[in-house]
Structure formats: C-alpha cells, structure tokens
C-alpha cells in the first residue's frame, strides 16, 4: 500500500509538463492499437473475407464437378433459391424449430435458474450435473440421443415399456412429427444449462431487499415473481434468448447426425440445405447465395442484440 501513497505525487509531478504527458498518452494509445490489431485482423480475415467471397461467388456459376465452366450469372442463383420450394420449406422448419426449442429451453432454463438460486442441500450437485451435458459436443449429444431412441438398445423404449406408457415399439425417426422429439431433447440437454446460467447470473444481481419490502407490502411469492423477478431479469433474458435463437437458426450438427433431414424432408433445416448445396452438389455459387441469405438473417438478429445491449448502457453483462 506504500506504493499507492507514492502514486499521487508521481502523477502530480507529471502535470506541470503537459506536452510530455500528451506524447506519453499518444504513445500508449499507439501501443493500444497495435495490441488490438492482431485479434481484429485475424477475425476480419477469417470471418469478413469469406463473407465478401460469398457475395462474389453467389453471382457466379461455379460447380466443382464441372471445372473450367465458371462464369458470371448475375442474380440467377438467388432467383433459383427463392423459386425453390425446398428452400422455403427448410426455412419454415428452421423457424418452427427456433420457436419450439428456444421456448422450451427458456422455460426449463428459467425453472432451473430459480431452483439453483435457492439454498438447498443438493445445490452444488445440480449445478455441476447440468454443466456436464453443456460440455459435450453437439454432434456427440445428437449421436447419443439417436441411440437412446433406438428400439433395441436405447433407454427410451425400455423406460416407456417399464412404465407402461404409450409409445413403446414406436419408430420415432419414421414419423415426420415425432422425429423432432429426439432432436429437441438432444438440443435441450445440451443447451438448457447455458440459458440457466445466464439467468442465474441475472437473478444474483437482484437485491434481496426488494423482495422483502414487497413481502411487507403483502405480495405473495407468485406476485413477486411477476412484479419483480421477471422485469429485473429482462436484460439477462434478452441476452439468453437472442444467443439461443441465433444458434437454433443455424442448427446443423444435430440434424446431420440424427436424421439427415428425414424422414423424407421433414426435419431438413436451412443450414443443412446450404451444406448440401456446397458439399454434395458441389455447387459453390448456389451455396454462396444461400449463405448470403443466412448471413443477412443472422446479422438482423445480431443487430437486435447489439441494440438491446446499448439500451442497457454498455457491453458488460
């Protein structure tokens, strides 16, 4: 702490020489930019460059299996995309998946956060146990839940039968609607903890006194939840929702591993559509057009997010 007392005079002696101090500040700021530059440059190269590349590619006919035939085609790829009913079908399914999975994960995450926020014996165990699924790669989670729903060795069928519930011997992946059940369960298993943790952090910022004064005013805990918790939790809720909505919009690993878009086309999503155009049809021009569309949608969501953060007056959560 001796250092601290020396600090004031040190700064004080600096002030009579404003010129030197200004150049010192300029030097520091130059060093600052130099420190920031590599990270920004790296991100720009890896993320912005592909974005621009996609814009160029999307106006070209470029099919890898037809070498030497690449040429400019204007908006033909975009025209083909918007006239392809499969594109719109996949976009619609993606939207439904976003709404359903994010809603379920939000409700479950909120309940989870409220539970963990309370003091009880198994609190540590719950916190640790929900975090482990979050650390499992999405593709692995999908692979596991696919096997869990296997009629023979999976536990879902075994449990349904043991509990005498309907649905035993059901081939989930052969139903256009039921095939979504394992997909959503796998997605929830992996992602609910993330929402819960964000909401928990939000809950911990709410001062306990507000609840106490509410109780004195005669509010029951249900009323307090609606009147205090939810409004004060709003920023954390928004952050969690936007992050999850965005990653749900780009869902790929789960679909690729679990169903390949089947049965028929009933679980195909827009990221899968794009990947197929790129890596199976090897039609890079068309794939780029779809990628541009997806990027625009993602950036719209990102803009909403940034605006919400601004409203909160800063970036730090």
């Amino acid at each position: 702490m001796a250092a601290k007392t020396q600090l004031a005079p040190a700064l004080g002696t600096g002030s009579p020489q404003p010129k030197r101090r200004r150049s010192y500040m300029a030097a520091r700021s130059r060093v600052g930019y130099l420190l920031v530059l590599p990270a920004v440059a790296a991100l720009a190269a890896i993320a912005i460059y592909p974005l621009v590349y996609n814009l160029v590619l999307s106006t070209r006919f470029d099919v890898l299996t037809e070498p030497g035939t690449g040429h400019f085609t204007g908006l033909a790829n975009y025209k083909q995309m918007v006239t392809d009913p499969n594109f719109w079908g996949d976009l619609g399914r993606t939207g439904i998946f976003m709404v359903v999975s994010v809603t379920l994960e939000f409700v479950a995450g909120l309940i989870l956060a409220l539970i963990v926020h309370r003091q009880f014996k198994a609190r540590g165990l719950v916190r640790a146990s929900i975090l482990i699924p979050w650390a499992i790669p999405t593709a692995v989670s999908a692979l596991l839940w696919k096997m869990f729903f296997d009629i023979r060795s999976g536990f879902v069928d075994f449990a349904l039968k043991a509990l005498h519930l309907p649905g035993s011997q059901l081939v989930w992946f052969n139903s256009p609607t039921l095939a979504w059940v394992p997909i959503i369960l796998s997605d929830m298993w992996k992602n609910t903890p993330f929402i819960a943790l964000l909401l928990l952090a939000g809950l911990q910022t709410i001062p306990q006194e507000i609840y106490e004064s509410a109780r004195i005013d005669g509010a029951n805990s249900w009323q307090a939840f609606w009147a205090i918790t939810l409004p004060l939790l709003r920023p954390a809720i928004m952050v969690a929702l936007i992050f999850r909505t965005l990653s749900a919009m780009l869902v790929f690993d789960t679909i690729f591993v679990m169903t390949g878009g089947g049965p028929g086309q009933s679980t195909e999503v827009v990221a899968y559509y794009d990947w197929y155009k790129y890596m199976v049809s090897l039609n890079f021009g068309f794939g780029a057009a779809v990628a541009v569309a997806i990027t625009v949608l993602a950036l719209i969501l990102a803009a909403i997010y940034v605006r919400l953060l601004r409203q909160r007056g800063g970036f730090m959560a």
Binding site: P176, G262, P263, G264, S266, V280
Partner: peptide, 16 residues
C-alpha cells in the same frame, strides 16, 4: 440418388 432417397423416406413415413 438424394432425390430418390427422399422419395423412399417420404413414402415409408407415410407423408406421401
């Protein structure tokens, strides 16, 4: 082949 796979799968699952 991808189109045929989709047609077979859509039939077996009763969608078409």
């Amino acid at each position: 082949s991808a189109q045929i796979q989709e047609a077979l799968s859509a039939t077996y699952s009763g969608q078409e």
